[in-house]
């Protein structure tokens, strides 16, 4: 059951260019799957800010986020010890059941964080996990070491070739054999992944939101089964549901 909880900020620090990691302590029992998100009140701003959950336990949450405007910039200045008002356990996350033996996880930029929590859980189930992480340039890279520490296969691509393989995540997909793919990233990347992958896939979409729990209808998208709310029916949709 999702709810509204007060979390204690344990850490909030910079990971890479404009990318921060926040660790929170509090009741996170309503987060049940990687790919779910939280909607956080930020002092001085009217709307909450939705963030995907990078990792979670019963009493902790990790959020890895990019500063994109005044709200997230203010969020990056939040100090350890401060309290945050969080709507927790929102949306439907990735289903571990669809994975098969060899899941492939494909993340682009700030879409990468929810794939960490997913990779951790798939690895714990003994799956043979491969992760492809796409960035623009070396200075933007984050979470690579965290993924490697899970013991999963990690391939990094950069658009400018300053680290790992030069190019886009979709340039390296052909070298993998996989039973299911999970992905999160910019819409253009998701569409390219959709076109260049085979078999089943789970896609996490992003949209501007107000409430984050289904009431306002700000984040509606079209699917093969009709209108859906990214915040409620999503943010994770199955490949066959997507309409571009």
């Amino acid at each position: 059951m999702r709810g509204q909880e007060i979390f204690n900020v344990k850490q909030n620090y910079k990971l890479a260019d404009a990318v921060y990691r926040m660790e929170l302590e509090g009741n996170a029992s309503s987060v049940t799957a990687a790919g779910q998100f939280v909607n956080v009140k930020t002092s001085g701003f009217y709307l909450r800010r939705p963030f995907s959950v990078c990792d979670f336990s019963e009493n902790s949450l990790t959020i890895v986020y990019k500063t994109a405007g005044k709200g997230t910039e203010a969020f990056s200045r939040v100090k350890p010890g401060e309290k945050l008002d969080v709507l927790v356990g929102l949306g439907n996350g990735y289903s571990l059941d669809k994975s098969g033996e060899r899941p492939l996880l494909i993340g682009g930029g700030v879409g990468i964080p929810p794939l960490y929590g997913l990779a951790k859980r798939l690895a714990a189930q003994g799956r043979e996990v491969n992760v492809v992480l796409g960035f623009n340039t070396a200075s933007e890279i984050f979470l690579e070491k965290d993924f490697r520490a899970l013991g999963v296969g990690v391939t990094v691509t950069t658009v400018d070739g300053s680290y790992g393989k030069k190019g886009l995540v979709t340039d390296v997909l052909g070298s993998f054999s996989y039973t299911h793919h999970y992905t999160c990233g910019p819409r253009a990347m998701l569409k390219a992944v959709y076109e260049k992958t085979t078999g089943g896939g789970s896609y996490s979409l992003e949209e501007r939101m107000a409430c984050g729990f289904g009431a306002c209808l700000a984040c509606t998208c079209k699917t093969t089964y009709g209108h859906a709310r990214v915040c409620k029916e999503g943010p994770v949709f199955e490949k066959e549901d997507l309409v571009w």
Binding site: Y46, G71, R208, A210, C216, L217, A218, K222
Partner: peptide, 23 residues
Amino acid sequence: RFGNPTPRVAECASGAVCSIGLQ
């Protein structure tokens, strides 16, 4: 009705500007 295309919400000081379009 599907309503209007997204983005449908923008923030402002002490409020929000929304355009759902009667979905």
